[in-house]
């Protein structure tokens, strides 16, 4: 007999956008459902629930992850940022601003995932080319824009962030 316990419910305590959420969850509950239903963070969207569309992309301990491909019980002790954590004090951040100015969204459903994906990408590649942006967001499906305006938004965001950096 293993001395490791198999549990039907587990307590999960996780820091999301700076707040600590603690809840009892069944192992089968996906992280995406946990965020949406337990935490009320409905900005993380469910477009496919099988890890292809990217709409549920979040930041987990500094890296993007698909919230539909994780179970809530796995994030105990982790730090998560969701789309709701990007804007501060009612102000959109430079990436969000760039999406607004460049019509980088239409219906807005893929946008949360796009923003999280682009956030990680720009951290790793602050001066990207258009082709690099296209590859970076190729795991996030958008059905509205035809992508051109999203690519433009991310490139514009890179410029703004570089300018902000320079100003410091």
């Amino acid at each position: 007999m293993s001395d490791v316990q198999v549990s039907d419910k587990r307590t999960v305590s996780v820091t999301i956008n700076g707040h600590v959420y603690t809840a009892e969850v069944a192992p089968r509950v996906t992280l995406a459902d946990f965020l949406r239903k337990e935490c009320g963070l409905t900005g993380t969207h469910l477009g496919c629930e099988h890890g292809v569309c990217g709409a549920c992309t979040i930041m987990l301990d500094g890296r993007t992850a698909r919230a539909c491909l994780m179970l809530a019980v796995q994030v105990d002790g982790c730090t998560i940022t969701t789309v709701e954590g990007l804007a501060r004090n009612g102000e959109l951040n430079p990436l969000q601003q760039a999406f607004w100015d460049n019509h980088g969204l239409q219906c807005g459903f893929c946008t949360s995932g796009m923003l999280m994906c682009a956030t990680e990408f720009l951290e790793q590649n602050p001066k990207p080319t258009g082709e690099e942006v296209r590859e970076a967001i190729s795991g996030n499906l958008c059905r509205c824009t035809g992508y051109a305006s999203i690519v433009k938004s991310v490139l514009d965001a890179a410029d703004r962030m570089a300018a902000d950096e320079g100003a410091r």
Binding site: D8, P27, R28, T30, E49, V73
Partner: peptide, 11 residues
């Protein structure tokens, strides 16, 4: 598309 009930253990 919700997973079926399952037990969970951390190794």
């Amino acid at each position: 598309m919700k997973p079926p009930a399952v037990g969970y253990a951390r190794a």
